[in-house]
């Protein structure tokens, strides 16, 4: 994925979501509820696995709840937190 290394976590997350078939308006300034984009369990699994593989993180059980996706901003912070733990 081009230029991924210089993107912020949120921008990179949006890119990963896009490659999993979830297209969101990255220019929007309002927070986004991702739950509306998850159409079925296949979409959910495929998306989470892509994020874990791309960021080389593992989500703990308490994050793997449907409501964790209600805020893209909060979810980005969770990913940031896991990245910091790895470092």
């Amino acid at each position: 994925m081009e230029n991924m290394q210089i993107m912020s976590t949120k921008e990179k997350l949006i890119k990963v979501l896009e490659l999993s078939g979830i297209i969101i308006d990255s220019k929007s300034e309002t927070d986004i509820d991702l739950r509306g984009y998850i159409t079925d369990s296949l979409q959910y699994i495929s998306t989470i696995v892509s994020i874990e593989n791309e960021f080389d993180i593992e989500f703990p059980d308490e994050v793997l709840k449907y409501d964790s996706l209600m805020s893209l901003n909060a979810f980005s912070e969770i990913v940031d937190g896991l990245l910091n733990e790895n470092n």
Partner: peptide, 9 residues
């Protein structure tokens, strides 16, 4: 699948 934006599992 990624370049076509398709779900894959």
């Amino acid at each position: 699948c990624k370049s076509n934006r398709k779900k894959y599992i």
